[in-house]
Simulated assay, not measured.
Amino acid sequence: MSELEDEPIDTAGIADDWAAALTAQQGVAADMAAQADAAFTVDDQPLPPGSGLSLPKNDVNLDVILDVPVTIAMEIGRSKISIRNLLQLNQGSVVELDRLAGEPLDVFVNSCLIAHGEVVVVNDKFGIRLTDVISPTERIKKLK
């Protein structure tokens, strides 16, 4: 047997470590939300709702996160169907969605709703024109 196999595992200590880490994470999340609310001001005046982003007075170096990849997805609509009906789908099948024709699409970044938009065609490729962007303050509120 190796030395590691002879030592008993301290499960109570591991549980305490996890509890401490979770408590610290919750505190950091609360601090970040407070800083974000404070960051969206101009001349110490809060921005009106829906006015968009502004840089805080102190210089923030965003270069460290500009190359972080994110996933952007557009959702036309959703539908719930049984597995039986799912297995019966084939070429030419039509699935009814929960949206009406002409309703805006949802735009998600890393599964977080950030905007609504409409489909456009540019040079024979689909695109999306943003019609309504969720304000940063509203996005932060949804994280809490």
Rank of each mutant, 00 (worst) to 15 (best):
M1W: 07
S2A: 14
E3T: 12
L4K: 15
D6N: 12
D6W: 05
E7A: 11
E7G: 09
I9F: 11
D10T: 02
A12K: 10
A15L: 14
A15M: 11
A19W: 05
T23C: 14
Q26W: 10
V28P: 14
V28Q: 15
A30M: 13
D31V: 13
A33F: 10
D37M: 05
F40R: 00
F40D: 00
D43H: 05
Q45V: 01
Q45G: 00
Q45H: 04
P46Q: 01
P46N: 01
P49H: 13
S51L: 08
S51H: 14
G52R: 02
G52M: 03
L53K: 13
S54G: 11
P56A: 02
N58M: 11
N61E: 07
N61H: 07
I65Y: 05
T71H: 03
T71E: 13
I72P: 00
A73T: 11
A73N: 13
E75M: 15
R78D: 11
S79Q: 10
S79M: 10
I81H: 00
S82E: 10
R84N: 14
N85I: 06
L89I: 06
N90H: 05
N90F: 06
Q91D: 07
Q91M: 05
S93R: 07
V94L: 09
E96R: 06
E96M: 04
E96C: 02
R99Q: 09
L100Q: 03
P104H: 09
P104Y: 01
P104W: 00
D106I: 13
F108G: 02
V109F: 12
N110R: 10
S111T: 10
C112K: 10
I114D: 03
A115T: 03
H116V: 07
H116W: 13
G117T: 01
E118C: 06
V119K: 11
V120C: 08
V121Y: 01
V121D: 05
V122N: 06
D124C: 08
F126A: 09
G127T: 12
G127R: 11
R129D: 00
L130S: 14
D132S: 15
D132E: 15
D132I: 12
V133Q: 01
I134C: 11
I134R: 12
P136K: 06
T137L: 01
E138R: 09
E138Y: 09
I140K: 08
I140R: 06
K141V: 09
K141H: 04
K141Q: 08
K142T: 08
K142C: 07
